[in-house]
Nucleic acid binder design. Sequence first.
DNA 1: ATGAAAGCGCTAACAG
DNA 2: CTGTTAGCGCTTTCAT
Lengths: 341, 341
Amino acid sequence: MSTIKDIAKSVGLSVTTVSRALNDHYDVSEKTKQKIKQAAKELNYSPNSIARSLVMKKTRTIGLLVSELFREGVKDNFTFEVLSGINKCAGQLDYDLVLFSTNSAKQKVKTYTQLCKERRVDGVIISGIKTNDPYLKEIATSDIPCVLIDIPIKSDTVGFVTTDNVLGAKEAVRHLIGLGHTYIAFINGHEFAHVSKKRLEGYNEALEEANIPIQKEWILDGSFSDEVAEQKAAVLLKHYPEITAVFCASDLMALGVIRAANKLNIKVPEDLSIVGYDDIILASYVTPSLTTISQDKYQMGYQAAELLISMLENNTDPHQRLLNTKLIIRESTKLNTKIKS
Amino acid sequence: MSTIKDIAKSVGLSVTTVSRALNDHYDVSEKTKQKIKQAAKELNYSPNSIARSLVMKKTRTIGLLVSELFREGVKDNFTFEVLSGINKCAGQLDYDLVLFSTNSAKQKVKTYTQLCKERRVDGVIISGIKTNDPYLKEIATSDIPCVLIDIPIKSDTVGFVTTDNVLGAKEAVRHLIGLGHTYIAFINGHEFAHVSKKRLEGYNEALEEANIPIQKEWILDGSFSDEVAEQKAAVLLKHYPEITAVFCASDLMALGVIRAANKLNIKVPEDLSIVGYDDIILASYVTPSLTTISQDKYQMGYQAAELLISMLENNTDPHQRLLNTKLIIRESTKLNTKIKS
DNA sequence: ATGAAAGCGCTAACAG
DNA sequence: CTGTTAGCGCTTTCAT
């Protein structure tokens, strides 16, 4: 590997000049610039980003911190789509992306700050962690620039990107109400997800504005898991046969509910309408295909990266980005045929 | 940020000793070690991996090079699963993972070697590139340690992990033959995929061993895309109604073929048996669920990382790993009811 | 068992 | 426009 020193030697100039020429500084004559660049090419030079980072104290690298459930995320490839978006944006702005995977064992040994400082990332994007994650407190107070996905914390150094989950949920439920449903259950995620809180609000508000009483027993947590949702729904549907529609806080859970319905011989969508959330790939391929609230996960990633980098480069935009969701109507919802008593 | 210098000052020792103590060298007394580590904690020290990398000429970082089709990979999250596996293994062995995304524009500016040298990764894993990719020649000759996924190139510095695609395809076709099918078409990927070549071999061999003549017109490329496969299959099935089974080189394409069949009013599996390849998530969720050849994509990633790191650490294992595939029988294949004339 | 000194490859005052 | 000098934070001979 050749270094600027080699180039300097070969052209008979100082390393300073070489460095400046290679970085296209204005204060090097065009002629020497050419000569130096030529020599660099001949020597097959490529810059040592490590050395540069050391002196500049910038690595042009952003870290992506995802919780260990990474692998489980395979079913709904939410994380993957977010990652694609981040990767795209980072690439365009010439940043590198490094993946951190932590698990609770590691978290005990190394604090969030240590992790980041050690890796020398300029900033971090955090996705898929629960609101009770021990890292979260640290994040909020640390001085490492950071963008959270779907957790609304804002400070000088932390920002977030999310979607309007209240509205999203509201539209889902409104859709069901519009189809004549009034007995609408809700399978939510869990208490440590900010989106779950918001989607619950949306559900409640939609019912209220239609003067439909809220049945607490019809609101259950499914942990964002299809299995759990299936179990919960099985009990629920057996117990309350009057329910004609279920809103789920994720598509995966909606699939679980469909399975539960099938086993109980309840037909979807004839006897039971179901709307999911996320619009994962499966949603459109499954039978019946899923009516759902679509989130642009790729865009969330892209925006997160863009926001983070803008923060790194001292732009003073507000540290938050809000994306839209969209109701996608497919086969799993249908006009309510049971007359309301 | 505190440095070893600060620690040295605070305990009144030299930086050398501090460095050695922190790295648990044998030639530092237990007592001073303790003192130094204590001071490190108090000063909230965390090592600067950049500085260390600079002097050690090792970054403990591996790069993952994926082609631009990254985003398209969202449907079959093949890449994501591989990535999860790599990430897991890298994490366990305490390596960092950085993502490179290239596209043809960037490739023109920077050669593969430049890309890697600049990023200072110790080694690279490459997945999802075509055999005609310009980088490939460079890779084969470069001295950067590298592991390829599904491209069998081997040298001092390059290794690969793949599955037995001949056998996989053979088992798929044997399964169909076992069900009484003899008119079996094959939708392959494309000519620039090594796996496609191998799967074709497997298809041919399976037919040969059953004394079934090979029909060249029934072998088509679907580019690993569901749309292309759908089109191709539509024409094929209309033209040759005698076909009772189709083997596809990917599940995604199998889904395309099912769609084509549906549109032609050909029932799957009653009138047409279909077997896919990969066992992506969709395969088990779709109706009818897909009989397929399962590849453990997570494992491929894991093994690739493990192999690469073993190469980096000068282990002399053979630079290749071969994984098994498994036939998964689901709903899309069925006994052939049409009697062979 | 500890320290002094050199150097990894690069950038950035400062001086000319 | 170019060169001198210093230093980023760390590891590693080589002495002591």
